[in-house]
Amino acid sequence: MAPLIVNEIISPDTNLLLALLIGIGFGFVLESSGFSSSRKMVGVFYGYDTTVLKVFFTGAITAIMGILFLSLFGLVQMDYLYIHPTYMTSAILGGVVMGGGFLLGGYCPGTAFSAIAIGKIDGMLFMVGMFIGVFLFAEGYPLWEGVYKANFMGTTTMNEILDIPRGVFALGLILIALAMFWVGEWAEKKFPREEY
């Protein structure tokens, strides 16, 4: 049955509309869970607030379980799901740059827009910085094209890289997530801050 658009159950236009609604929902939840505060966001680096880690890991394990169970019952066809191609060098470098920017600026791209939506000036500055980065990347593309495209691994997935069944990988991720939650909560007690 799913993916709906590939199986022509919904049209591309309906798909866009659904994307808009999901996007609004996502933004609303980000804002209402306090992700528009840069202090809360960077808390994950200092250990006093690990909401970010908990939310995103919860999202990951919910999604992985949802997809795997839907696939098990034949409701989603895994072959048609889009898998983002992996450029390993880019992924690692990008992760470092993104983490550094996150620590310095206090936002990740999505939450910066959440902050802008409630009129935060630091969020706006963050977005300006983001566009400067995008501009520099695009203008200097010939300089880092080699690095950007290095270690291309195709549309692979983690369980294929590790050569284990995807269900086993899912179980592993769940256990890792729960362990991270436990460490996160422990860190929150260890490095508390009164107000932020």
């Binding site: 394990i61 098990l72 069944p165 179980l171």
Partner: peptide, 23 residues
């Protein structure tokens, strides 16, 4: 946690659904 861990064990234990759908 006691809900999600058993679910994870189930999904790890069942074989992958590899049926090729006809379009």
């Amino acid at each position: 946690a006691s809900v999600i861990i058993p679910l994870g064990i189930i999904i790890a234990a069942v074989p992958e659904n590899t049926t090729k759908p006809f379009r």
